[in-house]
Amino acid sequence: MNNYHVKSQKKLTRQLLKILLPFGLLSIIIVWIGVPILYALLWSFVNPEFPWSYPDPFPKNLSLFQWEYVFKYTTIVKSIGNSFLLAFVTTIVCFILALPTAYALGRRKLKGSEFFKIIMLLPMVFPGMAMGLFLGRMLHGMGVSGTYLGVVMVHTLVSLPYMLRILVVNFESMPQDLIDAASNLGAGNWVKFKEVYLPMILPGLVAGAMFTFITSMEEFNLTFIVGAPDITTIPTVLYSYLGENFLRTRASVVSLILLIPNLILLIVAERKIKTEYMGAALGKM
């Protein structure tokens, strides 16, 4: 075989790889995420009169029985309310805590700021259960076990790193010239914050809020240890069906309830972030 042939074959292989690789990855993702969701959907509609068992590929009979049961006879409605309330409050608290901290770490040349940047990520790497056991004792001692305050505190602890990390990077990457230009033209601190910092970190703020919200919505370990049994959220209800009294059908219903709002949030936020970032990224600064 001559040289030209080898080359053109190599080129063909590369082109094929270019198509096959993304396609293959996409397929894996679809299978990994799609199939469980599909099964959850199917399981949630199984009619308990006609159990779904091997070797049937699909349930024999579909009904809304499990959905009705979960909404009528469990604390799910209250838990959904709790979850959203907690996620909302946690996001606000994270925002209030993260904004000045991120500003200090990102814009001011503080001694040891690199050290603080690592410290602030620790809650992300600590195993939730390990942290929960000791934190639970502490919060119990403080008398906030089983209160909304206590749960918001632990949710803030685990979600804050996401918000902080994103905002610190945002603040760091803001050109000093822009800030100087604003003060040079007569802007005081409040105007600089409102008209320069805030619009520039808005994409990061949206992304951070999204991560915070979702983390809070899905947080189980600490919620369970600090909140149970007084405060239940969607995940604690979900886990209660996964223990000894394992009920796949009901767990499917609850997991879908947990999944759907997060999915919607992700899509909406992603749209928002993209358009905002385009503006900032393309501005020749």
Partner: peptide
């Protein structure tokens, strides 16, 4: 006197235009 009270105006090497503001909004900022 802090920079915002000095009544100087600076043209930066990077231009330092506010990327989220229009040309008009940039110019009337001062």
């Amino acid at each position: 006197v802090p920079p915002n009270k000095r009544n100087t105006a600076m043209c930066f090497q990077s231009y330092a235009l506010f990327p989220h503001k229009t040309v008009y909004e940039n110019i009337i900022f001062g």
